[in-house]
Design a protein around this nucleic acid. Structure first.
Lengths: 227, 227
DNA sequence: GAAAATTTAAAACAAACGTTTAAAATACCA
DNA sequence: TGGTATTTTAAACGTTTGTTTTAAATTTTC
């Protein structure tokens, strides 16, 4: 066996493991899967090249473990927000804004929570949706497939007259906008000649929610001009 | 000299050159800069490994030349649409939709024009904004910097009461949404369980224009609730 | 048609990658 | 403390990468 499974009582020194995951996150966010080098991960983690394989078995497994640890809490928060809104609404429909807010706000909150450089998580989430690697695609299905139906259900309830095609189209555009905004966020400062503050993620999230909510509703209502 | 400059009368057989650029486009769109291999480009172009270096000098120069050939006509079309709308408007402001349409429509038209697999150009444009490589970033400034100011000028004229910060913020979100939608487009079919047709780029462009126009206006007007 | 320039072809180069192996070091439990 | 399991280290392996070199083939020009 080249590497061992974790023992039941994890009292061992997971320090190396944590350092590896942390630098993996940093490098994956900045350079993507292909640009991430095990040698640089090891060097920045102040450990040896072989330890990545010892702890995780492969480069891919290490990146996947890092991603899972980051994506899961965001998705749980999303579902929690949606559940909260549903409880308050009783049997009635939610507003589009409530649903979109449940989708977007958790990302901003996790970014605010994140101790180190704020941009990391934004780039990370963005890369999750731009990397062409197959293991990322399967991850999407695994992590977002569950969420998607729940959100579509609420959107359908909020817009009972909308066609299925339009619901999916505009939800797709909403998600794409959110990911695009996260991916492009680091460009904001240069883009605006310093007028906009790219460290203000809270502002971005609020503006993004407004943007997406109204984009979605326009797409839905625009195709319902028969009423 | 390992490679020569083009002679003044370009009567030479540029067939190999064109084949190289075409497969470069295909592979760059599908796998990004790092995933593109000169050996595979040469093989798919039915030529030798060394010819890429002979014709372009390096891998990077070859990809850049391919990108320039693709991005330039789109940007020229954008400016042409904007000029057309300005002529019709005389001294008055343009509508938000006219401006956003001038930004987005050319991409759809170039995609429709493109002979081979439609998805290529969408992925290409998307990659142009997700690749972390430095040469792409400088390309953005070079190719989009000129455009950006022109579009911002028209948007400012259309929304004279909006603050500079809000103009840039929402234009930034508009561009991010456009790029996100292009990048995510191939996911639409799986995402919608086959309900939405991912080959219908014309439909996407129209929906995207509506989405972005209303998102932008909501962001602008939302911050002007003092009126 | 001969000479010169251009284009293709084959092979080799140095560097970097993920991965594996085997030994040294450390931590844990008796 | 001693023995065993766990963790770290160093070195090497086999591929693959972009690039360069050298020669052959082709095209252009006079």
């Amino acid at each position: 066996m080249p590497f061992a499974k974790r023992p039941n009582p994890p009292k061992r020194s997971d320090l190396t493991r944590k350092r590896l995951l942390r630098t993996t996150e940093f490098l994956f966010a900045n350079r993507g899967f292909g640009g991430l080098t095990l040698r640089e991960v090891a060097h920045r983690s102040q450990t040896n090249l072989a330890s990545a394989h010892y702890h995780f078995g492969s480069k891919e497994a290490m990146v996947l473990e890092m991603l899972e640890a980051r994506v899961k809490p965001i998705n749980e928060l999303r579902l929690a927000y949606l559940r909260g809104a549903r409880q308050r609404a009783g049997d009635g429909p939610l507003t589009t804004r409530e649903i979109i807010r449940a989708l977007i706000l958790p990302v901003g909150e996790q970014i605010a929570k994140s101790s180190h450089d704020c941009k990391i998580l934004a780039q990370l989430v963005a890369r999750t949706f731009t990397e062409p690697a197959n293991f990322i695609q399967t991850m999407h299905r695994k992590f977002f497939g569950e969420l998607c139906e729940t959100f579509i259900d609420e959107l359908r309830r909020a817009h009972p007259r909308a066609s299925e095609e339009n619901l999916y189209w505009n939800f797709h555009l909403s998600i794409s906008s959110m990911l695009g905004a996260l991916a492009q966020h680091r460009r904001l400062k240069d883009f605006s000649h310093g007028i906009c503050n790219e460290t203000d993620f809270q502002a971005m999230v609020e503006k993004l929610i407004t943007f997406v909510t109204n984009g979605f509703e326009a797409g839905i209502l625009h195709s319902q001009d028969d009423e």
